[in-house]
Simulated scan of single mutants.
Amino acid sequence: MDIAVSVGAPQGVSVSRSGIITAWSCRPGESIESGKSAVTLDGVPLVSLSTSVPLWRDLSVGDDGADVSALEAELARLGYAVDGNGTLSYRDLAAFSKLASSVGADVKDVVPRDAVVWLPAAAVEVDKCEIGLGSNVSAGQLLASVSADVEVAPVALPEGRIPGPRLLNAFGEPLALGDAGELPTDLPAGLVRKSPLFREAVGGSDNVTSVTLKGTAVLATPVQVAAVPATAVQVLDNGNGCVFTDTSPYAVKIVGSEFGNSFVLFADATPPTSVLSSVPKEHQECG
Rank of each mutant, 00 (worst) to 15 (best):
R91Y: 00
N85H: 12
L88V: 06
A121C: 05
Q141K: 10
G178S: 07
L157M: 11
V150S: 04
D92H: 09
P174D: 04
V117D: 09
S145A: 10
G86A: 09
A180G: 13
A170W: 00
A121T: 00
L167K: 07
P158D: 11
P174Q: 10
I131L: 14
Y80H: 15
D109S: 15
D109K: 13
S89W: 06
V155S: 03
V117A: 08
E159F: 03
E125P: 01
G172Y: 12
N169R: 15
V117K: 05
K108F: 14
Y80E: 04
A105C: 07
G160R: 10
L183I: 05
V110H: 13
E159Q: 13
A94G: 09
L143G: 01
V110T: 15
V117T: 15
L168H: 05
A123I: 02
P158A: 10
G84R: 04
S97K: 05
S102C: 12
G104W: 12
P165W: 07
E125D: 15
E130D: 14
L177S: 07
I131M: 14
G178A: 08
F96A: 03
K128N: 15
A95V: 08
Q141A: 10
K128Y: 15
Y80K: 01
P154N: 09
F171R: 04
G160D: 08
L99C: 12
E182W: 02
L157F: 11
L187E: 06
S89T: 13
D109V: 14
A122P: 01
V152R: 00
L157V: 08
D106Q: 11
R161W: 06
K128A: 15
D114H: 12
S101D: 12
E130T: 14
P188R: 03
S147A: 10
A105W: 05
C129Y: 08
L142E: 10
E130Y: 02
T185G: 11
P163D: 10
G104V: 08
K108R: 14
L88H: 05
R91P: 00
G104L: 09
A123L: 04
A156C: 08
Y80C: 02
Y90A: 13
A144K: 01
A148R: 06
A189I: 00
S135I: 03
R166V: 03
L177D: 04
A123W: 01
I162K: 03
L99K: 05
K98S: 11
A94T: 12
P163Q: 08
G164C: 10
G104K: 09
